[in-house]
Nucleic acid binder design. Structure first.
Length: 744
DNA sequence: CGCGAGGATATTTTT
DNA sequence: TATCCTCGCG
C-alpha cells in the first residue's frame, strides 16, 4: 500500500492535484500539514519533480521546521534542497543576494519593533512633530498598513491631498523611509515590499526565481496580507502551480494587515482554481468540535463548512466562573496538578490560553508556589531584552557601520562618559554633512564644540575598529566573548549587584549558547557562518519558535501564539466581556467585524483541544493596578448546554470573603444570567427539604417529556433552574416551578 | 554628565 | 502594576 492511501478521499485529491492553482480549505485539525508533506512527496516521487523546484512557505520558523522534518521523513532523498521557510526569511534570502539592485547594501540590517520606535522618535523630533498628538505607535501602524498595501511614501502623499492629518503622516513616512535607507536598514514590512519591488523591476531576477519555484505551497494562507499575496502571485504567474492551504475561520491577523479576501476571492483571481475542502477533523472529540462549530456559526461571510469527526463524543466541556482572577488561576493550577498526580496526564499535555500576555502573571505566580514546571511563550521576546539588544548592537555595528541606531545605543553602554549633548553634536554634524553617525564619529576631531567628549569618542571608535579587525579571524562566539570582556559589560552589570542583574547575566549566557548553536547548525548544513546570517536569524525569530515539545512543562500562551498547536487538555482562561472579546473590539467603530475576528480567535482556541476543554472566567480582575468587573464572555454563551458537563459548575464563594454580597446583589446577578446555564453566584447541591424535592443524579418524570436524569440544578433568584437529560426527548432546561418534575 | 525621584502613561493580538 | 520619561540636583 502506498503512503497516499492512508489519506482520506479529499486529502488524496489534494495530493494528486499537482498542476494549476489549488485552494485547500482545511478546517482545524483536518490534517493539512499531512496533506502538504504528502503532496511534496508525491511531486518528487511520483511526478519526478526536482526538489529544487519546490517552495513551501509558512508563517513561523517553528512551522517551517516541523514541515521540513516531516518532509525529510517521507521523502527519500533530495529533500534538503526543497526550500521550506517563512515569508520573511524567504524574502531576506532573496534580498541578501539582489538588494543591491535597489540601492541597498546586501548586508542590510533588519529593524525590529523597538528599533522602529526609536527611529520614529528621531523622525518626530527632527520634523518637530508633537508626539502628544501624533503618537509614534499610531504613526508606525499607519505606515505599516500602507506598506502592507504596497503604497509608497510618495503615493501616500498624493492620496493625502487635502487631508491635513494624512499629509502629516505622509511627511513622517517619507522621512522615516529616508532614515531607514540612510541606515541601510529594512523594517519587517520592507522585507516583503522590497522583494516584490525587486521582482517588479528586475525581470532577470524574477525569471530566475520563477524558474526555480515551479511548485509553490503556502500554509496558513488566510493570514496573508496584500504584499504577501502579491509576492506569491508574481512568483507563481509563470507556471501557475500554486497550492494554498488555509481556513478562513482561523484568520486572526487582520491587525497585521492580513487580508481575508485573499482566501475568499482566490477563485476569482485564479479562475481555473480547484477548491478542495477538508472537513474531517482528526484532532478533537465530538463535543469540542460541536462547541467550536456552534461558536463560529455566529459569524457571517465565511466559506460554508462544518467540521465533523469520527472520534467519539468524548468528555463534555467544563465551565467555571470565579470571583476573582486569583481564584481562577488557583483552580486551573490545582486542576492540572491533580490530573498529573493521578497519572492521567503529563504537564506538557496541558496548555493555558488567554487573550493578552498580561494574564500570564497570575498563573506564573501560582505555578511557582505549586512548584510545577511551566513555560510562558511570548511576552517580551528574548532578543528584545535590553542586555541582549545591547550586545547585538555591538555585533550590528561591526557588521554594518551604517546602522546609526545600533551605534547610538552602545556608544555609552557601558558608561563611557559620553552624554547626550555630545551625541547630539555628532548627530547634527552627521546630518549636515549627510553622512552616517559612525562615519562622523570617526572624524570626531573635525566636529566643532565637542570639547572633552572627543577623546572618549575616539577611544570608542578605536575599540570598535579593533573589534572589526578581530572579527575577520574570530568565530562569532569568540567575538562575542571578546566584546563582553573588553567592554566590561558583565562587570558593569555585576557591580549593580541586584537580583535583576542575575537574570540578565543568565540571558547573556543563553545568548552565548544560541550563538554556538547557530555555528554548529551552519557546520551541519555546510553553510558559511556569517555575522549577518546570525543577526538575521535573530531578527526573525518568534517566541513560539523556541517552544520545545520534548520538555515536560505546562505551556502558557496567547491564543494567537497557539494557532497550529494542539494539546490534550486546554484551558481557555479569562472568558470575559471586555477581555475576550476585548474591550477595544467591542468599542470599535465597526464592532461586528472586530467581534468576528475575536470569535475566530475563540474558534482557534477551542479547536486546540484534543480531549478536554475547560473555559473559565472571573468576575473581578486587576488590570493595570485597578480592579475591574466583567461579565461572562458572549462566546461562552454561544456554546450550547448539551456540550457542557453537568454537576457543580460554580465554585462556592470563599467563606472568608470579607465582601459578603447582599441579597439584592445576589438576586441582581442571578437575574442577569438567567438566559444561560449557569449562575454567576453560587450553585447549590440541593439537599433535603430546601430544594425542589430532587437532586442532581436523580431520575425524574415530566408530563410531556417522560423520564430523564437530572444533570444540573442551579439557583436563580426565586426559582431553581433544572437541567434534565431525558431518555427520549433530549436535554431540556426548565424552571422547577413550571416543570412539575416528579422524583421517581 | 550621571543619578534618583516622581509623575505620566499605557496594554490586544505579532512576523 | 511596570515601564518610560522628565526634571532637578550634585
Amino acid at each position: 500500500m502506498s503512503i497516499y492511501e492512508t489519506l482520506n478521499d479529499m486529502q488524496q485529491q489534494a495530493v494528486y492535484h499537482t498542476d494549476g492553482p489549488l485552494l485547500i480549505l482545511a478546517g482545524a485539525g483536518s490534517g493539512k500539514t499531512r496533506v502538504l508533506t504528502h503532496r511534496i512527496a508525491y511531486l518528487i516521487e511520483e511526478k519526478g519533480i526536482n526538489p529544487w523546484n519546490i517552495l513551501a512557505i509558512t508563517f513561523t520558523n517553528k512551522a517551517a521546521g516541523e514541515m521540513r522534518e516531516r518532509v525529510d521523513n517521507i521523502v527519500g532523498y533530495g529533500s534538503e534542497s526543497i526550500w521550506v521557510s517563512t515569508f520573511h526569511s524567504t524574502c531576506v534570502r532573496i534580498l541578501r543576494r539582489y538588494i543591491d539592485r535597489l540601492g541597498y547594501d546586501t548586508n542590510f540590517t533588519i529593524y525590529d519593533t523597538d528599533d522602529q520606535k526609536t527611529l520614529m522618535k528621531d523622525v518626530c523630533k527632527h520634523l518637530q512633530i508633537d508626539t502628544k498628538i501624533y503618537k509614534e505607535r499610531s504613526l508606525l501602524s499607519a505606515i505599516s498598513s500602507a506598506k502592507n498595501e504596497m503604497i509608497t511614501a510618495s503615493e501616500y502623499r498624493l492620496q493625502a491631498e487635502g487631508d491635513y492629518g494624512r499629509q502629516k503622516i505622509a511627511q513622517v513616512y517619507e522621512e522615516y523611509e529616508k532614515q531607514l535607507r540612510a541606515n541601510n536598514a529594512l523594517d519587517f514590512d520592507d522585507l516583503l515590499v522590497k522583494a516584490v519591488q525587486l521582482f517588479q523591476t528586475q525581470p532577470d531576477v524574477l525569471e530566475y526565481y520563477q524558474e526555480r519555484f515551479r511548485y509553490i505551497m503556502v500554509d496558513e494562507y488566510q493570514d496573508t496580507n496584500t504584499v504577501q499575496f502579491k509576492l506569491i502571485q508574481i512568483l507563481a504567474s509563470k507556471y501557475r502551480n500554486l497550492c494554498v492551504v488555509g481556513d478562513d475561520d482561523q484568520s486572526i491577523y487582520k491587525f497585521r494587515g492580513a487580508n481575508i479576501r485573499n482566501i475568499l476571492n482566490f477563485e476569482q483571481v485564479f479562475e481555473d482554481a480547484r477548491v478542495i475542502k477538508l472537513e474531517q477533523n482528526y484532532r478533537s472529540t465530538g463535543n469540542i468540535l460541536n462547541a467550536a462549530n456552534a461558536v463560529i456559526r455566529h459569524n457571517r461571510g465565511r466559506k460554508d463548512k462544518t467540521l465533523w469527526t469520527a472520534n467519539g463524543e468524548g468528555e463534555k466541556l467544563t465551565f467555571r466562573e470565579f470571583d476573582s482572577a486569583y481564584d481562577e488561576a488557583e483552580y486551573i493550577v490545582g486542576d492540572i496538578k491533580s490530573h498529573v498526580n493521578a497519572g492521567d496526564l503529563a504537564y506538557s499535555d496541558n496548555a493555558i490560553l488567554y487573550r493578552t500576555n498580561a494574564q500570564s502573571r497570575l498563573f506564573e505566580e501560582k505555578f511557582v508556589t505549586a512548584n510545577i514546571p511551566y513555560k510562558i511563550v511570548g511576552g517580551i521576546n528574548f532578543y528584545a531584552r535590553k542586555e541582549i539588544k545591547d550586545l547585538l548592537a555591538y555585533l550590528k555595528t561591526i557588521d554594518n557601520g551604517r546602522d546609526d541606531l545600533a551605534v547610538r545605543r552602545i556608544i555609552n553602554v557601558p558608561k563611557r562618559g559620553i552624554g547626550l549633548t555630545s551625541i547630539n553634536r555628532v548627530q547634527e554634524y552627521a546630518a549636515s554633512r549627510e553622512i552616517g553617525f559612525y562615519e562622523a564619529l570617526r572624524g570626531v576631531d573635525l566636529i566643532p564644540n565637542i570639547g572633552r567628549g572627543a577623546a572618549r569618542m575616539e577611544s570608542f571608535v578605536a575599540l570598535m575598529e579593533h573589534f572589526k579587525a578581530e572579527a575577520e579571524n574570530l568565530s562569532i562566539s569568540e567575538l562575542m566573548d571578546l566584546i563582553i570582556e573588553e567592554t566590561g559589560y558583565e562587570e558593569e552589570l555585576k557591580s549593580e549587584g541586584e537580583i535583576e542583574a542575575e537574570t540578565r547575566l543568565e540571558n547573556i549566557d543563553e545568548l552565548r549558547s544560541k550563538i554556538v548553536a547557530y555555528e554548529e547548525l551552519c557546520e551541519e548544513q555546510q553553510t558559511p557562518v556569517t555575522l549577518s546570517g546570525f543577526l538575521e536569524e535573530v531578527a526573525l525569530v518568534a517566541d513560539i519558535d523556541s517552544l520545545d515539545e520534548n520538555g515536560d512543562y505546562v505551556v502558557l500562551m496567547t491564543l494567537h501564539s497557539a494557532k497550529g498547536l494542539e494539546f490534550p487538555q486546554v484551558y481557555l482562561a479569562g472568558m470575559e466581556e471586555g477581555i475576550f472579546p476585548s474591550y477595544i473590539s467591542i468599542q470599535a467603530d465597526n464592532p461586528e467585524e472586530e467581534i468576528e475576528e475575536e470569535r475566530r480567535l475563540c474558534y482557534v482556541g477551542i479547536t486546540r483541544a484534543k480531549k478536554n476543554l475547560t473555559l473559565t472566567c472571573a468576575r473581578r480582575r486587576m488590570i493595570r493596578g485597578e480592579t475591574q468587573y466583567h461579565t461572562m464572555s458572549r462566546f461562552m454563551k454561544e456554546i450550547p448546554v448539551e456540550f457542557l458537563s453537568s454537576g457543580e459548575i460554580f465554585e462556592k464563594m470563599k467563606k472568608a470573603e470579607p465582601l459578603k454580597q447582599t441579597a439584592y446583589q445576589q438576586a441582581k446577578q442571578s437575574f442577569h444570567s438567567k438566559p444561560f446555564v449557569m449562575k454567576p453566584v453560587q450553585q447549590f447541591k440541593v439537599t433535603g427539604g430546601k430544594g425542589p424535592g430532587y437532586d442532581v443524579g436523580d431520575r425524574v418524570r415530566h408530563v410531556k417529556f417522560g423520564e430523564g436524569l437530572v444533570t444540573a440544578i442551579t439557583e436563580g433568584g426565586r426559582d431553581y433552574e433544572v437541567t434534565v437529560d431525558f431518555d427520549s426527548a433530549g436535554t431540556k432546561k426548565m424552571f422547577a416551578a413550571f416543570a412539575k418534575l416528579q422524583k421517581i
